[in-house]
Amino acid sequence: MPATATALPNRPSRTPSARPRPALALLALLVTVVVAACTPASSSTTDAGSAPTFTLRVGATSVTGTPSGSLGWGDKTGILGDRLKAAGVKKIEYSYFQSGKDVVAALLGGAVDVAVVGDNPTLTAKGNGADLRLLAFDQVHQDAWLIGAKNGPTTIAGLAGRSVTAPQGTIRDRAARQLIATAGLTGKVEVKDVPTPESIAGLSSGSVDATIVTGTGAADLANRGYPVLDKTMAHGLGAVGTTVALSSFVDGHPGFEDAWRSGLTATNADVRAHLDDYTAWVAQNDGVDVALVRQVTTADTFNREALPADGLAELQAAYDFLAADGTLKQPFDLQQWVGQA
């Protein structure tokens, strides 16, 4: 995460020939202290005759060090920034993290204003007492594939007595457990906490029986002959991408919630209208074959409503699973929470 620079109050310059008188120096110091104490962390400024403006700090995961998905397209086209101007956003500053858990931790710690993460870290944080506001989904119907090793089981049933790998606390971890439960294999298949790169390497060596992979990585493995044992979307268990902020931030920035929703839904509408251009950009940005991107990218993933009913159903399924397995230490009323958005 890039370091956030803290603005230091300007100090009057001193030269031997120009020394301020003590009374004026004291007055200047008092004014500087008051101004510094009243300046919010988001660096809000007010131009004469205009509403306060501020730099919006957005946290997300990224393997390229640039905004990706809907967020990236909104940044590239300028759609997101244009819509956010109505709420006083003069600039968007991005910070990138290794996992959704890290993004949420940065949000709770005050390092970013908005977190763009999967539903798993959002629900886990909310279910552990965080005062989060659900702003919008950036994508829905996100699929996860259970990929097996070559010369191993060709169906999920064949994993009985074996193991599946997935990074703990992620959507992939939940997807593994959901697919195991759906297949009636709970207690018969172990889920091991292994990062995705090591899991994929293990598939190749045969030391890993199966792992959960998403996006172009899943399509690439399938095209190279690794068996696809199951998919979450085959059971209506797709994940959603969430965008959340602290309630205190939303309450302190009137109009931001509506502007953010407008920016995301307008971005997604533009993606759907220019899907070939979007997938070509993703392929170039991620350094992968555009055919792989188009194999796993469908228009219905990009919701044109902030919180569409089908996305809410997927979020509810995720909540129910996490509540049942004890991940949520403080279960909450999901529908009431969504209704506050």
Results as ranks from 00 to 15, higher is better:
residue 1 M to N: 12
residue 1 M to W: 07
residue 2 P to C: 10
residue 4 T to N: 13
residue 8 L to I: 14
residue 10 N to G: 12
residue 14 R to I: 15
residue 21 R to I: 15
residue 22 P to M: 01
residue 23 A to N: 11
residue 27 L to Y: 09
residue 32 T to G: 10
residue 32 T to W: 04
residue 34 V to R: 11
residue 37 A to H: 04
residue 43 S to C: 09
residue 44 S to V: 06
residue 45 T to N: 09
residue 46 T to G: 05
residue 50 S to I: 09
residue 52 P to N: 10
residue 57 R to W: 08
residue 58 V to A: 04
residue 61 T to E: 10
residue 68 S to M: 15
residue 69 G to H: 09
residue 73 W to V: 04
residue 73 W to D: 07
residue 74 G to V: 06
residue 75 D to E: 14
residue 76 K to Y: 07
residue 81 G to K: 05
residue 90 K to R: 15
residue 93 E to K: 13
residue 96 Y to I: 05
residue 98 Q to C: 10
residue 102 D to W: 03
residue 105 A to S: 12
residue 115 A to D: 15
residue 117 V to I: 10
residue 117 V to C: 04
residue 121 P to N: 12
residue 121 P to S: 10
residue 126 K to Y: 04
residue 129 G to Q: 05
residue 130 A to G: 01
residue 133 R to I: 11
residue 136 A to Q: 15
residue 136 A to M: 13
residue 138 D to E: 11
residue 141 H to E: 10
residue 143 D to S: 05
residue 144 A to Q: 11
residue 144 A to P: 00
residue 146 L to A: 03
residue 146 L to W: 00
residue 150 K to G: 05
residue 150 K to A: 06
residue 153 P to Q: 06
residue 160 A to V: 06
residue 160 A to F: 02
residue 162 R to W: 02
residue 171 I to G: 12
residue 172 R to V: 08
residue 175 A to Y: 00
residue 177 R to Q: 11
residue 177 R to E: 04
residue 185 L to E: 00
residue 185 L to Q: 03
residue 191 V to E: 00
residue 195 P to W: 02
residue 198 E to D: 14
residue 203 L to E: 01
residue 204 S to C: 07
residue 207 S to R: 10
residue 211 T to V: 08
residue 219 A to Y: 02
residue 219 A to I: 05
residue 226 Y to F: 13
residue 228 V to I: 10
residue 229 L to W: 01
residue 233 M to Q: 13
residue 233 M to N: 15
residue 233 M to A: 10
residue 239 A to P: 00
residue 243 T to A: 13
residue 247 S to K: 14
residue 249 F to K: 01
residue 252 G to K: 00
residue 254 P to E: 00
residue 258 D to I: 14
residue 259 A to R: 03
residue 263 G to A: 11
residue 265 T to I: 09
residue 267 T to Q: 05
residue 273 A to I: 06
residue 277 D to A: 14
residue 280 A to Q: 08
residue 281 W to F: 05
residue 282 V to L: 12
residue 285 N to Y: 11
residue 285 N to I: 09
residue 288 V to T: 10
residue 290 V to S: 06
residue 298 T to F: 06
residue 300 D to C: 04
residue 302 F to P: 06
residue 307 L to I: 07
residue 310 D to A: 07
residue 314 E to M: 12
residue 316 Q to D: 12
residue 317 A to T: 10
residue 318 A to N: 12
residue 325 D to C: 07
residue 325 D to E: 13
residue 339 G to P: 02
